[in-house]
């Protein structure tokens, strides 16, 4: 018998996300415009209200934080909307009929969404930098930090997916979650060190370290890397575990096709 290929699942989901993004171009453009408008709001706020001596650093801080917020929303919240939509449309049960396992398909969907949206993020980043005339340090070191940060984000995405699976009507919660995620990516660790335990915060802090403060590889301690790696692993595994629990509950109560 043919063995199912997980890589083909990733490709299929990547194709789906890209196709829908291209097909609904006005929707994609409006998302970019909204985030650019939010950045402009922060940027102009700094120009008007902020101290002139720290305006440059603050602007760079805002550019990175806005981009990370967009990424966080795509990775952590998008799947919640998708689950609700799939249950409403009746396609969720088809995902559960796959011998690959629904959680792998959802993971592929989340990874696909993040990869496709990374292109938009890069575009937004350059647009923001050009608007503010502030050029960030684009270092390859950002990539491993981003990778680990995204892994943690996907874990939270699974938790949101689990909640959506069982309760379906989680729209209000997802709306509120946007602001929680904004706090996670924007609050500096130095202001509240305990936030290191929260998802994304450590990664966002390190990304800003590289891009704004131009911290080199040697600028991060082993503890920084360990904390980032552990945070990513714990949230990812916890997300999968909690999603599995939610899935069992949904199957017991017959919630997969309920809308």
């Amino acid at each position: 018998m043919r063995r199912p290929g997980v890589f083909n699942v990733l490709l299929a989901n990547l194709r789906k996300v890209a196709t829908e993004m291209r097909r609904y171009l006005p929707n994609t453009i409006s998302t970019v415009v909204t985030f650019y408008a939010i950045f402009l709001m922060f940027f102009l706020g700094i120009q008007v209200l902020g101290a002139p001596e720290s305006a440059e650093t603050n602007t760079q801080y805002v550019i990175v934080s806005t981009a990370l917020w967009f990424l966080a929303l795509m990775a952590m919240q998008g799947i919640g909307w998708e689950i609700t939509l799939e249950a409403t449309r009746g396609t969720l049960e088809q995902l559960y009929m796959s011998p690959i396992g629904a959680w792998r398909i959802l993971l592929a969907r989340m990874v696909g969404t993040v990869l496709v949206n990374l292109l938009i993020i890069v575009l937004m980043l350059f647009l923001s930098m050009a608007t503010a005339r502030q050029w960030l340090n684009l270092d390859l070191l950002t990539l491993p930090i981003l990778l680990l940060t995204i892994t943690g984000m996907l874990g939270v995405g699974f938790m949101v997916a689990g909640l959506s699976l069982v309760y379906k009507q989680v729209d209000s919660l997802l709306q509120i979650a946007q602001f929680v995620f904004l706090a996670f990516v924007a609050v500096p660790l130095s202001a509240l060190p305990l936030l290191e335990l929260a998802p994304v915060v450590k990664g966002a802090d390190m990304v800003r370290g590289v891009m704004v403060e131009r911290t080199p590889l040697t600028g991060f301690s082993v503890f920084d890397w360990l904390s980032l790696g552990l945070n990513a692993a714990v949230y990812f595994l916890l997300g999968i575990f909690l999603y599995g629990r939610a899935e069992r509950r949904a199957m017991n109560r017959g919630l997969l096709g309920q809308y």
Partner: peptide, 15 residues
């Protein structure tokens, strides 16, 4: 066609 490709992909079948 996209539906068929996507749902086959979700069962692990290559395009």
């Amino acid at each position: 066609r996209e539906n068929m490709l996507y749902l086959a992909g979700n069962r692990g079948v290559s395009a």
